[in-house]
Every structure is written in C-alpha cells, then in structure tokens.
Write a protein that binds this DNA or RNA. Structure first.
Lengths: 165, 165
DNA sequence: CATGATGTTCAAAATATACTGAACATATCG
DNA sequence: CGATATGTTCAGTATATTTTGAACATCATG
C-alpha cells in the first residue's frame, strides 16, 4: 500500500515478556488487552514513543492505539512529553505506583462506589414503607450494607496510603 | 409445558434493587451477572434457598444457577445449610465481609499475583545475559517491578486486616 | 433395582466487549 | 490556500464471555 516501508523492529524476548506481564495486569483490572500492551511498550522503552511507534511495534490498529492512550492518560498511567521541533505527541510511562493507583482509584473505582452508595440510600427509603413479616430481618441486612459501604469508603484512601510513594 | 405450575413469586421492588446492587458489584469484580443475582437473592432472603428456588425467582437456567452457586461457594460467599428431611442443598449468603473478601482474595487474586511474580523472576533472568545500550535503564525498570511486586504482596494481607471482622 | 428427584457438564446460541480501518477533524507548513 | 501529517471517532466485524438446555451422573427411596 505504502512504498515507504514502516520500520518494524520486532520485539525481543525481554520486551515481549514485560508486555505480557502488563497485559495480564490489565486483565486483572478489567482493562482491554491493548491498554496493557501499550503501557508495556512504553514501560520498557528508554525513550518516549508516539502513537505510531506504539502501533507499529505492537502491530495493532490506529483506533485501538488512540483509545488505549486515552485510557492510560485518563488515570495518569502515562505522561506526555514535549519534543521540540516535532509535531507528534510523545509518551512515557508513569512509574510512580502511588500516582497510578490513585488515578485508577479515583477514575475507575470511585464512581462505582458512589453510585453504589446512591442505590443503598434508595433501598433504605424503599424499606421505610415496606410491610412483611421479614421486615426486621431486612432492616438488619440493609444496615449491614450501609456498614460495608462505610468501610469501603474508608478502606480505599487508606489503601492508597499503604501503597506509599 | 409443565402443568404443575412453578410458583413464581415475582420479585418486589426492594428485592430487585438489592439484587441490582449485587449485580453491579459482581460486575466490578468481573464475575458473571448471574453470580451477582444469585448472591443477591440469597442475601435478601430471610430463609435458606435451594437451587430451584433461586432459578425460578431469578428466571435463569439450571446451568447458570449451578455454575453460579459453585463460584459463590468457591470463595465462601455462601454457606450450605442442612435441612433435615430434605434432599436438596440449601444456601444462605455469608454476611461477614471479612470472610468474603479474604476468600475472594485467596481464590481469585492471589493466583494472579503469584504468576506475576514468576514472570518477573523470568524477566530478571532474561535480563542477565542481555546486551543493549539501554541495559542500565532496563535494570532499573526491572527493579521497579520487583518493588511493586513486593508492595502488592504486603498490601493484600494488610488490606484484609483493615476490612476488619 | 427401577424411579424420580437433584445437581453437573458441556456444546451451541446469545450477548457483551474489543478491535479494525476508513472517514473525518485539526493543525502545520510550503 | 492546497497538500501533508497527526490524531479521533465510530460503524461494522471479530473475539471472548455468559447463558441456555438437554444429556448425563448420582443417589435416596419405595
């Protein structure tokens, strides 16, 4: 298609292993595989890479690469680097576990926790005018939920402290 | 199809809301929706339920119900209850957050952490006889990984302590 | 030991999720 | 401007996961 051939330096074994590690991490965190791959290639690289560098080395599409970079930016797992005289955006992997974890927590987890809290409040309301023999039992259960909620809210920030700098 | 009609007591709004809550929790933990539904119906119920009770009230298949109960058993989110004179297995929801969380951690998370550790060790080995200008840089990166690994290993148990009884 | 009740398994179908690539926006530069 | 470089979006496709339902195992009981 294009007669200016794209230089594809094949990933060596070390790079592949590192990328595979992050692909599995992405999987644990419920993120698309491509997000793990992109973070991985940036993590092993000793220099900043642009969208096309990532795309070509990983052999994935432009769309995936763009999406993946956006997600990684969204919780601060990568940083953009300005390179004078170059129009492209370059990226490096953020290596502070604390920064990544707290970005992830606030962007990807906190919203769920919050909407869970909303729903529990709603359940509490429904319970007010509820009639059944098991109402007593249900009240206890809902209190249990509120208790979990409270603990989850406290645990998240504490967790981040433990992860340290 | 069957002329002995199955008694389907339709879920009331409160029950539906509680189940919806657990469906979203399941989603956060990457578990099938049906697992959330089953835990939910057991959680709201004031009496133990058997497979068919769950299946009928949730209107899901026997296969899903069986699988879902197996998963919930696997990390201790539900307990079986013996009911004299009844051949069926009955279940109740475990309500100790500590028990559920630690079961989940050891069954669903720990294996991943362990295999991650293996991979990092392998990467360290590959690095030994590696030649490149950027070897210095890579050594640092791998040390970073080992550091993360260590902290993850310590944080998980600590997290469980924080969740308390 | 035949029967019906209970639960499990697994191949196929349904559903949800991620990826691709081409069309589009935007900006730079000659 | 027009041409080129860069990045984004999104409809369609590919892939992965979950659910279904029927066949199969197991077992208590008359």
């Amino acid at each position: 298609m294009n007669n200016v051939s794209e230089k594809v330096r094949v990933l060596d074994e070390l790079e592949s292993e590192v990328i595979a590690l992050f692909v599995r991490m992405a999987d644990m965190l419920n993120l698309p595989r491509s997000v793990g791959e992109i973070y991985g290639i940036l993590f092993v690289s000793s220099i900043p890479l642009c969208l096309d560098d990532c795309r070509i080395r990983l052999n994935i599409s432009k769309g995936s690469t763009s999406q993946g970079l956006k997600i990684l930016r969204s919780f601060g797992a990568i940083r953009t680097v300005y390179i004078p005289g170059d129009r492209k955006d370059y990226y490096v992997a953020e290596t502070s576990l604390r920064k990544i974890a707290s970005g992830f927590a606030s962007e990807q987890i906190q919203p769920h926790v919050a909407s869970g809290a909303d729903r529990i409040a709603r359940i509490r309301e429904l319970l007010e005018d509820y009639e059944s023999q098991s109402k007593e039992d249900l009240v206890e259960k809902v209190e249990l939920l509120e208790n979990w909620q409270r603990r989850a809210g406290k645990t998240l920030p504490l967790l981040l402290k433990m992860i340290g700098k």
